[in-house]
């Protein structure tokens, strides 16, 4: 369970201080998938990165299963981070390590003893069907495969929470579907609480249970995909209206998302 209480995040100091996230409160129930959508620069990444304190909030609390991360000391924070996996738009794999060594690194950082790392890394790679690539280097893989390695790396220490920052934005639309399917399956199988940041509407509708809409750093709307499907929702923001728009397929299945061109909020903005 993730609970954000009145979280604000600023960059810079004094004159140049810029508030990228403004007073956001959000509750993400255990095992659910929370989508976060918004235009470029809305503060999505900043908000997501505040959940594991990669960005330290200037105000507010971050509660993970009731523990406030903002008051932890560095050692405690590292411990808490072992419970929070993260994947990125550009994968962020260590290029000079093999696929398996990349996954083992996460286990090492999480304090898993050497004897268990290899086996656990293999198991994690099996979840994303990449066990056969364990000795390849990231440079030998496609974008989609790299993201699957990154997913395996995030899952290997068996975290309760998975943070995803634009996980499909650097892969082609067909691969998008497969990545989303893995994320969905992982959520179902392990009950991992997932937060997904994206600017692609069909991505968020395919995957999320709840969708938070960010504008200029503020949370302007929070809606469940169920209510969008039932049209039980009166949008107050542009993106809310787009999400409801009939011309955009509602609740597309993940497979459909795979074959459809990605609809980003930016594209719609220009229509």
């Amino acid at each position: 369970m993730i609970q954000l209480d009145n979280v604000s995040v600023s960059y810079g100091r004094g004159e140049r201080e810029f508030c990228a996230v403004k007073d956001v409160s959000l509750h993400v129930p255990k095992s659910s998938i929370q989508g976060i959508i918004g235009f470029s620069g809305a503060g999505k990444s900043t908000l997501l990165r505040s959940i594991n304190l990669l960005e330290r909030p200037s105000a507010g609390r971050i509660l993970i299963d009731g523990t406030d991360l903002t008051i932890l000391n560095p050692a405690q924070l590292r411990e808490a981070r072992h419970n929070i996996g993260m994947i990125f738009q550009h994968f962020n794999l260590v290029n000079n390590l093999t696929v398996r060594k990349n996954v083992e690194l996460a286990l090492k950082f999480a304090g898993v003893s050497r004897a268990f790392r290899k086996e656990k890394a293999r198991q994690a790679l099996e979840i994303v069907d990449l066990a056969s690539k364990e000795n390849a280097y990231p440079g030998q893989l496609s974008g989609g495969q790299k993201q699957r390695v990154a997913i395996a790396r995030a899952l290997a220490p068996q975290p309760q929470i998975l943070l995803c920052d634009e996980p499909t934005s650097a892969v082609d639309p067909r691969t998008t579907g497969s990545i989303l399917q893995y994320l969905k399956d992982i959520n179902t199988e392990f009950g991992i609480t997932t937060v997904l940041v994206t600017h692609e509407m069909n991505v968020v509708k395919a995957l999320a249970d709840e969708i938070a809409i960010l504008e200029g750093g503020a949370l302007v709307e929070q809606v469940s995909t169920k209510d969008i499907r039932r049209k039980n929702f009166i949008p107050t923001s542009d993106i809310g209206a787009y999400l409801l728009d009939d011309s955009i397929r509602l609740n597309p299945t993940v497979e459909l998302a795979a074959s459809e061109p990605v609809q980003s909020v930016e594209e719609l903005h220009h229509v």
Partner: peptide
Amino acid sequence: GTVEAALAMGAKHRQVISH
């Protein structure tokens, strides 16, 4: 990129540098 990924995994600064 990789530094952030390592920090998110709970790596110590020393580990980020050496590993």
